[in-house]
Design a protein around this nucleic acid. Structure first.
Length: 307
DNA sequence: AATACGTGGCC
DNA sequence: TGGCCAAGTAT
């Protein structure tokens, strides 16, 4: 009799019978050997640091985030420190990370954490979701990575790995909490530490091996069980992603020009200076109004300043 | 549900 | 060159 009677099936293996091959075990093992050395994986990294990193990582590449994150945490080591600064300083420190509303939202979240949670980043997903700028991904990421709670964490990397390895599709369909969370839950190990490592590992796999454009399947821990690979990498036939609009000449572009100007000075930016940023007066006015409406620019006597 | 929202690197 | 992509959220 083999050792199966003496070594019971692991939790992960137990899922196998109803849910296909075990995805978690090879990913956890791979992650233990291949995890990048990133700031938020350092021992002693705080929950606040995790929250800040997750805000910055929303749609912005890791390499661009790291220097800004380190500056940010040196300047504002706690939520209360950030809450005590003007929001405009957060926008300035955000620099070129893009989507500067996130800086405003992060500042607002810091105020909320200070007021509602005594300055301690909450671990509860629903309390995190109630904070400004925190959605389904970030709430779970903070709860899991900062506090070790057991939840599925689903980002674009995770969705892509599951689409390929489990569903046999080259790309995931449109994001859907209704489908994405159950799909990840079905793969999640029962053990707390394993669940955390699996969440981090599958995200890392999507980020550095199972990438969108050039997957390195020969070095993938799932190469023997990946359904997309087994099927010969069929073209994706599902719903196409909405085409990203051209940036050059867009309203976003003009907003970006104005924001760069506001960040680079502590003096009000005059209407004349703003007028010099872009030839189309109507578009410039539209961008400026939008920024004021968003709270990123504030009109003063002399011109516009950060909040 | 579709769209707006920055900035830059990569092939 | 230019389209695609990047740890999403709010509306």
């Amino acid at each position: 009799m083999p050792e199966s009677s003496e070594s019971p099936l692991s939790d992960a293996a137990a899922h196998e019978q109803s849910s296909g091959p075990d995805v978690a075990t090879p990913i956890i093992a791979w992650f233990a050997e291949n995890a990048r050395d990133l700031p938020w994986r350092r021992p002693g990294f705080t929950a606040w640091g995790t929250l800040v990193s997750e805000f910055m990582l929303q749609q912005t590449p890791v390499a661009r985030v790291i220097p800004r994150l380190e500056e940010w945490l040196a300047r504002w080591p706690t939520p209360a420190d950030l809450a005590a600064s003007p929001p405009g300083e957060a926008v300035r420190a955000w620099a070129n990370l893009g989507y500067p509303r996130r800086a405003l939202w992060l500042h607002r979240a810091a105020v909320e954490i200070t007021e509602r949670h005594g300055g301690v980043v909450p671990s509860d997903v629903d309390q995190l979701l109630a904070l400004t700028g925190i959605g389904d991904y970030t709430a779970r990421a903070v709860s899991v990575f900062a506090y070790g709670l057991r939840h599925p964490v689903v980002d674009t990397n995770v969705r892509r790995v599951i689409a390929r390895a489990v569903d046999g599709n080259g790309q995931p369909g449109p994001p859907s909490a209704k489908r994405d969370l159950p799909a990840m839950t079905a793969l999640l190990p029962d053990d707390l530490a394993d669940a955390r490592a699996f969440n981090a590992g599958i995200m890392e796999l999507g980020a550095i091996r199972c990438t969108a454009r050039s997957p390195q399947c020969d070095d993938c821990p799932l190469r023997d069980i990946c359904r997309w690979r087994a099927a010969g990498y069929p073209e994706y036939t599902g719903q196409k992603k909405a085409v990203q609009k051209k940036y050059e000449g867009s309203d976003r572009h003009v907003r970006g020009l104005i924001m760069a100007e506001l960040r680079h000075t502590h003096r009000p930016v005059t209407p004349a200076e703003i007028a010099g940023l872009w030839p189309d007066v109507d578009q410039l006015q539209r961008a400026l109004s939008g920024l004021v409406a968003d709270g990123l620019a504030v009109p003063e006597d002399e011109g516009y300043v950060l909040p």
